[in-house]
Design a protein around this nucleic acid. Structure first.
Lengths: 347, 347
DNA sequence: AATAAAAATGTGTACGAACACATATTTTTG
DNA sequence: CAAAAATATGTGTTCGTACACATTTTTATT
């Protein structure tokens, strides 16, 4: 009877319940038009057998097409968001055969106006689900609200969003990653001095703020004797000339993904300073390999994109609900393990 | 014509080449019985269209059943191999619907005789592919040879095997991981002394040897001033009593997954010593959280099992060839990132 | 050249789920 | 209580691939 290695099919359920396949199908999909009596019989069977539909057959028979819009920062080659994008592309590959379509919408991550207008241009009704990077909080909330009002779902990556109710979120625990930076840095510091903290320009972003909060918190608790000197930008040495002259810096922490730039400036001026930065983008990796950066914190960008997209696709196709909050690991990259690191581990 | 969002089906290829679906199918599967003329026409079409079969339809129509034997160490709850096993189980889930079956074969990792006899008991002909942990080199080679002689494929995880030609290998670069331990340890050492190196009992294993070689190599180059004292076993303090009395130890490195045991012994005797060990098994994680271990090197055991199994399944179902050598990342786990670590990131 | 044998080619069915549509049963209504 | 309407139920087709089998064409043999 059961042809497929003992797996139970709709046909089998129908037989067990003494009804037709159609009725079982209607119950499974809540499509109504089943008498209370039949429903009871079917549900009784379902309760004891734990039916797992054959997803292959399911996908094949499903004619409906879904479009997922991915709203992420536009990106140059080898930058952070390129990696996120590659993760989404990779996930898309798995669904290329059927039913899922991908629609990109890119915004300028340094331009709030652009974010707003691009967000507005997204046609909620014409699409089915949304993968969103909430770079600008207020504007992202508006978008989230519009999606919810249309009764549709969205996934968040990179940063969370207050009061929003996404289908799922994938990102790093930014506060803890900041603490981690401190934990990693402290054992390497042999003498007293100041730690130079670079926020990067134009960073009002939540994520960066939380990293900073975590770092400051950890230093305050673990090694309050260190001073922290914060700069927002570091295109040349002028903002830190005085500190350099006094030789008071013992380390440098860069909270965005452009540690390689800081490393270059310092290196070009023959200043030795352990630097810790974020994100294993190519330039950072190179700087790490060349010993211009001491450590990188990784946050699995490809994995974030991959998993968020996949969650949306699975939701659309099979109504599967993912875990809501998903923190990615805080990866620690030093010279010794950078060559074998990859966050493209999708099996 | 092309119903499925523009994707090209066998039917379309047949039409383009002016032959029947059956002939296209025979070419795609190298099943012969196609004239040279037809073959040429079909291949011409295939060359320019990059045909990607619909895997869902493919799997659904495939009636052949395959069995994959997984030959791994037997394991207690929460030990290392339990995690590997969970990765394999996870991969199996994806194929549960169709065609792939999983057959376990467990061996005692501390008993070569057992490995030999269990390996012999595997019926090569009755199964289709094999996932193998080559704990004992010579014996594993024999098994690999038997499999190859039968014209079948196997995947290796954990350690590589000289002269064997597996379909794929997943594991850590053990030598480099040993170097990594040194790189991680050195900045934390404030004073001179000896480093205690624990091999663990009964470890003739290749993997452990390579870790040790990497570690020694790195120390020799980076900090030759440190002495290394090696012990094979450490059930109590007696083997290191003298060193302790002289307070010459500055750190402890444990090359197997039982760092938590060493940590416990030292902690129970109120000896403070930074310990670095391998593998994020529960006991080690706990010891790390309780500050009894300084760092853990992770090697993504679940990912190894998952990916190796999946590679075999994909090979059997679709003839897909995976990359042959796959090094997993060398994960660095400290107190600050252990809570967010997971190697079960399968999307 | 006729026939047998071999090779090539085309067709039909199955896989399991989804869903449209035809048929059967119950309920409502005059 | 019959006819109409509403609801319930069952059946058949579809998705794209795999593969068995029937049919046609080519090649070999006498």
């Amino acid at each position: 009877m059961k042809t497929n290695s003992g797996r139970i099919r709709i046909k089998d359920i129908a037989e067990m319940a003494g009804v037709s396949e159609g009725s079982v199908d209607r119950i499974l999909h809540n499509r109504g038009k089943v008498s209370a009596k039949s429903e009871a019989k079917i549900r009784a069977v379902l309760e004891k057998i734990n039916y797992q539909p054959n997803r292959y057959a399911s996908v094949l028979a499903l004619h409906k097409k879904y479009t997922i819009v991915c709203f992420i920062p536009q990106t140059e080659q080898n930058e952070y968001w390129t990696i996120v994008k590659s993760g989404i592309d990779k996930a898309m590959e798995e669904y290329q055969n059927l039913n899922i379509q991908l629609q990109w919408c890119f915004f300028n991550q340094f331009d709030k106006e652009d974010y707003t207008s691009k967000a507005k241009s997204i046609d909620i009704d014409a699409n089915d689900a949304f993968l969103i990077v909430p770079t600008f909080e207020k504007e992202a909330s508006d978008l989230a609200q519009r999606i919810k009002n249309a009764g549709k779902q969205f996934a968040l990556i990179d940063a969370q969003l207050e009061d929003a109710t996404p289908l799922c979120y994938y990102g790093q625990h930014a506060l803890q990653s900041g603490r981690m930076v401190a934990e990693l840095l402290l054992p390497t510091l042999k003498k007293q001095g100041s730690i130079l903290l670079v926020r990067g320009s134009n960073e009002l972003q939540n994520l960066i703020q939380r990293r900073e909060a975590g770092f400051l918190d950890a230093i305050r608790h673990l090694a309050p004797q260190f001073d922290i000197e914060t700069v927002n930008q570091l295109k040349d040495l002028s903002p830190i000339a005085e500190g350099l002259q006094q030789q008071r810096y013992v380390a440098c922490v860069v909270l965005n993904s452009r540690a390689w730039q800081i490393a270059k400036i310092l290196h070009d001026n023959k200043i030795q300073l352990p630097i810790i930065g974020y994100d294993s983008i190519e330039s950072n990796v190179k700087a790490l390999q060349q010993n211009q950066i001491y450590a990188i914190i990784g946050q699995r960008p490809a994995s974030q994109g991959f998993r968020a997209f996949k969650s949306l696709a699975e939701y659309l196709l099979f109504n599967t609900l993912p875990q809501t909050v998903n923190y990615v690991p805080i990866d620690l990259l030093l010279r010794g393990n950078i060559d074998y690191y990859s966050d493209l581990y999708f099996g």
